[in-house]
Design a protein around this nucleic acid. Sequence first.
DNA 1: GAGGTCTGTCATCGG
DNA 2: CACCGATGACAGACC
Length: 636
Amino acid sequence: MHHMKKYFTEGLIQFTILLSLIGVRVDVDTYFSGYFSPLIETDGGPSSAFIQTPFHHYRDTAAGHQVHPKCPELDYFFTSRRLLNEVRALGSPARFPTRVSAWLVHLVPDDGSDVSEPHDLSGDPDDEDVNTENHREESDHRTGEGFGRSVSQDCTVSRPCCAAGELSKEETLLKQENEEEDEKDERGQEETSPASLNQLTQSSALEQEDLLGSTLPPPLSGLELSPQWQDFLSEFDDFDSMVPQRMSDLEADLPNPISYDVSLQDAMVTRGDSANCRPASSRAPLFRLESTNSSHSVPPQTSAGAIPSSLFCLSGNSSRNETSPTQMGGFLDEAVFEHINMLDLGNLGTIDPQMLDGIQSEMDTPWLEDSDSGLSLESSSRSAASPSTSSDSFCEDEGGATGYSSEVESLSSKGGACAAAYRDWSPVNLLDNIWHDHTYSAPQAQNSTSPSWITTIKQEVMSEDESEPEEISRDERRVQALGLQFSAFQIVNMPVENFLELLDRQNLSGSEVTLLRDVRRRGKNKLAAQNCRKRKLDAIMGLQGEVEGLAVQRDALLRQRAHTAKALSAAAEHFEALSRTVLSHIRDEYGHPLNPENYTLHCSANGRVMVQPRTNTTSRTMTGSKTVKRKKVKKP
DNA sequence: GAGGTCTGTCATCGG
DNA sequence: CACCGATGACAGACC
């Protein structure tokens, strides 16, 4: 029996090996765990979602409990999850939708395997690391191509907020997790993608080859080709000089994409309007543009309020990363700037603080409510310890306040006259003056004779704040000492005509008049200071958004540049192939076929196609073909 | 106690 | 010229 068991086990092992050879994966652990069948289709490697995703864990979640391992919607399920993760990784929505031309998308070869993946077919184990690197890089390109295709569908796309160079570990893991699914999607989309340049050139090559093979006239003095062929060649006349440069730039720039730590959000002062700001944890990836070769390690979160010194110094980062300036110069070349100019960035400097102020004021009223009491609604914790509130003297701690002395205390009996003098002042006007400025706090209703609307305002503020009874500010105390009916808030917000009338009709001394003027001036200036600081914050937020948008656009431009370089490279190779095909049909004056290694085609400005001998340099890169001395070849 | 932050206040400028 | 808003600078309170 034991012998039979041994044979049975060995047979199972062999059977398992056979199954693995034909592409069926045997998951024994899963079988023992009893979740589902151990046989899983691998379909050419670890492309299955079962392998790449912790399905056992995910199945127990609320989102995955309905998914059966053999459910046909499983791919859709994991695709949805992948898309959800990508959307989450994007961060905040892009502020600047990038408009990309569809022709560029069509120009991008989808597979590019015939151009840049010869090493994949070599199977050289020494190149395994290189292949892995290239595979990841191409994976990124493909991701960008997928994005490009989505662009081609609607021409206007909100760029994802995955900033360039933020290929963080999370994103890398996510990409590795979904790499196979992306490739699967790529294959599916390639079938339905529009004709790429690759296909276009191939079809053109076949067409031209047939054309040349059948009706090519003898090139006696200058090769005469069909207009189509000449047009095609004229398109790639300068590719030979462009492609190596582009590719060299690409190779030099892409591995070190971004090295600038932009953390404007961290510069924001965390206060009442912090609700509008995203958490630092969520926004960190957007601005943590780390270079892969950067030795400068930045703490994950800088302290709030501390603007990094490198914030606006894009070119001043050389002390931290010496390669950065050149990289920036390489990235933001003229073409990039031209593209940026086309992307509606002209209004960067036209941020409307009033607009931001208006939008912001609807959401962040708390920061207005925690100001001083009376005029300023000062916070209770602060006011409790404030010396100004702990002292009864008006002269203490004046801090430069002018025109006030303690003698105003003796004038409190004049309040009745003041109130009588200002019965003609309509509270409606005061109400208008109050609510036109939403940044000012409600008054402290000092007098029992205050209008009911003032009490209502105070009660609203108190109910919203649920704060302790507010301390009276110094100016409020001074106004109370004068015995005026109106509070400091009213004095500050009343029209200037009424205020002047108040000063005139009262028998106030010079010091009292000065006091009231100072109270009014300080109150207004306090509001102005609050507005000013709020505008500063809004401006910083606006700049942060601009930086975010620029980072996103920069990422898009880099991707487009990479795609364009690949297209150029592919076109150059196709041009080379076509040239060889054409040259193979041409005979020299002795009737011998031309050696494609020694000759090349050159498209002149007048549309004529010339056969020129290659030089040593042009035999490989085709550069310098314009400088080659022309040699007319006669067809036999 | 030092440093950062917040807020009020003053001085100044321009509309 | 007075008034007012904006803003830099400073100081005090608070954490």
